[in-house]
Simulated assay, not measured.
Amino acid sequence: MTRGMWTLPNALTGLRLLAVPFLGAVLAVAGDTPGGRWVALALFAAASLTDLADGWLARRWGQCTDFGALVDPIADKALVATALVCLSARDLVPWWATVVVLAREVAVTVLRLTVLQHGVIPASRGGKLKTAAQTTMIVLALAAPEWTAVLTAVVVLTVAWTVLTGLDYGAKAAALTRARRPALQPPAVSPPHAPG
């Protein structure tokens, strides 16, 4: 982890966060029209591309930071949550799927913050695949909402993977807490030996 927070990868993460209210506004105002959905799709795709770019640049340039490890998944969650809530409000994604996904994301975020004193849990490969699955679901709902059978299958698979990766983060948080706890305890003092 590097110490500097002001890096290009972190700036891209910040831009992704800034895109969230604009995406929500487009879907709220014109999400029931094909034109509005295509504008939202373009905005969502551009914001999602910054997720690929910031991670690649951070690794290539050696600019991985604690800030990026913490804020990057939060930006992903904010983008996905906004899109899902708006799509469910337009009856394009079932509410049960949105509720399960949001509950998992809130739980993982709270978990990350709770164990922050022990260390940062970076996004795992399974977490990245989860984000890709959620992105695919949202893109499909925006681009082809009439593909109901395909969309339903994608929704079920995405929700299942989302829950599984949430359980994985829980296991990692428990392991991190157990690994750091002994270091915080004073070393044991052996009793003095009786003279022989």
Rank of each mutant, 00 (worst) to 15 (best):
S48K: 00
S48H: 04
L49E: 10
T50M: 11
T50A: 15
T50P: 06
L52S: 13
L52D: 09
L52Q: 11
L52P: 01
G55E: 09
W56L: 14
W56Q: 14
L57A: 08
A58I: 01
R60E: 11
W61A: 14
W61G: 12
C64A: 14
D66M: 08
F67P: 05
A69C: 13
A69Q: 15
A69R: 15
L70Q: 13
D72W: 13
P73T: 06
P73A: 08
A75S: 13
D76C: 06
K77N: 08
A78C: 13
A78N: 05
V80K: 03
A83G: 10
A83I: 09
A83N: 08
L84M: 15
V85I: 15
V85G: 10
L87E: 08
L87K: 06
R90F: 01
R90Q: 06
R90I: 01
R90K: 04
D91M: 00
P94L: 00
A97H: 06
A97V: 02
A103R: 02
R104H: 01
E105N: 11
E105A: 13
V106P: 00
V106D: 00
A107W: 10
A107L: 12
V108A: 05
V108I: 12
V110W: 14
V110K: 06
R112V: 01
R112Q: 10
L113E: 11
V115K: 06
L116F: 09
Q117T: 04
Q117F: 00
H118M: 01
H118P: 00
G119M: 05
G119D: 04
V120Q: 07
V120G: 03
I121R: 03
I121V: 09
P122L: 07
R125Y: 11
G126F: 10
G126T: 07
G126S: 11
G127M: 07
G127T: 04
K128N: 07
L129C: 07
A132S: 12
A132L: 14
A132Q: 06
Q134P: 01
T135F: 07
I138E: 13
I138N: 09
V139S: 13
L140T: 13
A141E: 12
L142D: 12
A144F: 07
P145T: 02
P145V: 00
E146F: 01
E146T: 04
E146H: 09
T148D: 11
T148C: 04
V150F: 12
L151I: 01
A153L: 14
A153K: 08
V155H: 07
V155R: 14
V156W: 06
V156K: 02
V156C: 04
L157N: 06
L157E: 10
W161F: 15
W161E: 12
W161I: 02
